[in-house]
Write a protein that binds this DNA or RNA. Sequence first.
DNA 1: CGGTATCCCCCGCGATACTG
DNA 2: CAGTATCGCGGGGGATACCG
Lengths: 244, 244
Amino acid sequence: MTSYGQFCPVAKAAEIFAERWTPLVLRELLSGSHRFNDLHRGVPLISRSLLTQRLRQLEDAGIVERRAAARAGGSEYYLTAAGEEFRAVVMKLGEWGQRWTRRFESIDLDPNLLLWDMQRWLNLKRFPPRRVVIRFEFRGVPRVHRTCGRWWLMVEPDAVDVCIKDPGFEVDLVVTADLGAMTKLWLGDLGFRSALRDGLIALEGSREICEAFPTWLALSPFATVDRPAESPAPHAAATHAEPS
Amino acid sequence: MTSYGQFCPVAKAAEIFAERWTPLVLRELLSGSHRFNDLHRGVPLISRSLLTQRLRQLEDAGIVERRAAARAGGSEYYLTAAGEEFRAVVMKLGEWGQRWTRRFESIDLDPNLLLWDMQRWLNLKRFPPRRVVIRFEFRGVPRVHRTCGRWWLMVEPDAVDVCIKDPGFEVDLVVTADLGAMTKLWLGDLGFRSALRDGLIALEGSREICEAFPTWLALSPFATVDRPAESPAPHAAATHAEPS
DNA sequence: CGGTATCCCCCGCGATACTG
DNA sequence: CAGTATCGCGGGGGATACCG
């Protein structure tokens, strides 16, 4: 948070934005989380005290407004107009990341995070008007996250939740998948059909539910970002494309 | 540079971009600096060893390419295609900064940086085809930068330089200005005419040169960014606007 | 649940000196 | 000029315990 000693608008903005964890906290706020614990679920590796500190800094900078919670205890955190305008920066940063980073190293795979993201963007309107429970069984989960291997997504008309313990309700659908493949799917790097065909993802449930599932799932906001143009595949490809 | 442990493209990009000093180093590279010392002039408060380290990190991340310098010793640093695409991020960040930060605190005023920026964006085509020397005398310079109070801008058809010592040539124009006002002018927060009118900036030279000077000077790339709409002045203004 | 407070360690970074 | 190497410190941040 110390100054860069420059009047340049890039420098002044970077003093706020380019602090460790801050872009992720902003991403969470921009995605619609307002409660401390929800923010923390989206950025689980930040320590709670540091999250507090970052929220205070953002408040001091006029990015975040802290309000007493309407219901229950604690506070709620809202972006100000200035904070909301970081959306363009976060989006551009994410677009860059989608185009130029390798995102499927084992160290970055996190089933909790994936499900937390998924539940945020579900097409709730397409669900039947009753409780739907989906169990996920992931293969290829990094050790740190391998608590039990099963996760539940509970979708009710007015509430969604991710559980790491069996909520006890009847399961409508079991999704068995390689975590890397599921993450690629989410990020638009793998198609649903080819994942099913190659056995990377398998669905187990009524035909109706299995067919509906792909329509329930929205993909990451960055799934549709163009990938960089291939470095022109030298000779073979060009030749191959030529009429013979 | 440690991982955030998230597959999210925002997180992966932030691991690279949201490191201390990195946005400023990228800004310099994007502005067309390639030599180590030029980069350092644009980010003078970073230590040379840390600048080296950041450039290495950017190289490892595939953002920067290091080449043996064509002339003279040392290396030159060029952005790769991936690096060039950070332009959109840096621009959005700067636009945010232009709209929402206070940039004229004394701690941020820096005459060297201001002149370094100015020389970078001069309208060289509008200069007469000979050497032109401009002397700047700034008032209100923070202590740390108050080396002598005078700076020279030397413009030759094929070379521009900023000096802190008298280069010895005849001076064509003397610009006397309050440093804060000059910075505001550069950032589009103050008009040339009103600055002259109010005595914040004074020109001393031939009539021809004085009239040409404003056309030589380009402004910051962010000077034309819209300022945020005023928070609607509550009651008085509304009432005032009503037909009576 | 929604944080605070405290301790303490590590390493990011500045300072300085050195090199080709 | 364009860096590299080394040292030492300060504080950023993790771990843990505590509170309303």
